[in-house]
């Protein structure tokens, strides 16, 4: 099987497994709804800056919860089986793509619920959607690799947070800046620079993940 076919089969497998149990999706949706509700109850109305920051914080914790299971949900015997039939590159790429899709779905749901409950102050919805899109992909790429690392350390959840936060915080700062620009309808040249930077960081992360994962999975 070539790489493309392997990736497709693996993504299909992940989606089928998720569809059967719907465990991850449902629990994360519940998590998002309850956090948004708590925020709404305690703030009622907020300034746009706070609105933006709150949204990203909710997304950050939702995604860390969703991603941390990405390598743990399968037993080590099953993992071994995958490694014998697929190349490690295909496995990590498939995981990244699957997690990106999952994150896109989750952020879409989160954004809808969030804007329903809080008043939506976004001025430039197109730019905000781009920032959300880039944000969910960035979360997926970084957290997938870190989940792979922390899964090797027996899936320690604290470790996952410790390892991924320093890496995700700079990304998050750029994302918050970009999306704040979308809310306040700033000029687009600064936003374009941020978008390019985010794509650049994502490309780096994916390349390094591809290079490093073959070393990681072998015990």
């Amino acid at each position: 099987m070539n790489l493309y076919k392997q990736i497709r089969a693996l993504i299909y497998k992940d989606i089928t497994l998720e569809w059967r149990s719907k465990y991850a999706i449902n629990s994360i949706i519940l998590y998002i709804v309850s956090t948004v509700f708590v925020c709404y109850q305690s703030f009622n109305a907020v300034k746009p800056e706070v609105w933006n920051a709150l949204f990203w914080i909710i997304l950050l914790f939702a995604s860390i919860n969703a991603m941390s299971k990405s390598f743990l949900s399968e037993s080590s015997e099953k993992q071994l089986y995958y490694y014998t039939i697929a190349s490690p590159k295909a496995i990590i790429l498939a995981k990244i793509i699957y997690n990106s899709l999952l994150m896109l779905l989750l952020t879409f749901i989160a954004f809808t619920i969030y804007s329903l409950m809080f008043q939506n102050p976004v001025g430039n919805l197109g730019l905000y959607s781009i920032s959300i899109l880039l944000g969910s992909i960035s979360f997926a790429t970084v957290f997938t690799m870190v989940a792979g690392i922390s899964a090797k350390a027996d899936g320690n959840n604290t470790l996952m947070a410790i390892l991924s936060f320093p890496i995700i915080i700079p990304l998050l700062m750029v994302l918050i800046k970009l999306s704040l620009g979308a809310i306040q309808e700033m000029n687009s040249s600064a936003s374009l620079k941020d978008i390019l930077l985010l794509i650049f960081i994502n490309l780096i992360t994916i390349t390094i993940s591809l290079l490093l994962f073959p070393y990681l999975w072998r015990d």
Binding site: M145, V146, I149, K152, A153, L163, P166, I167, P170, M173, V174, L197, I201, I204, T205, I208, S209, L212, Y215, L216
Partner: peptide, 22 residues
């Protein structure tokens, strides 16, 4: 040794971006 080496290599370019480009 192996896992920390992987993390070290993973973190380094991101640190460079953070300290010198951002």
């Amino acid at each position: 040794a192996k896992i920390s080496a992987v993390y070290n290599i993973f973190a380094f370019p991101i640190m460079i971006v953070m300290l010198y480009i951002l």
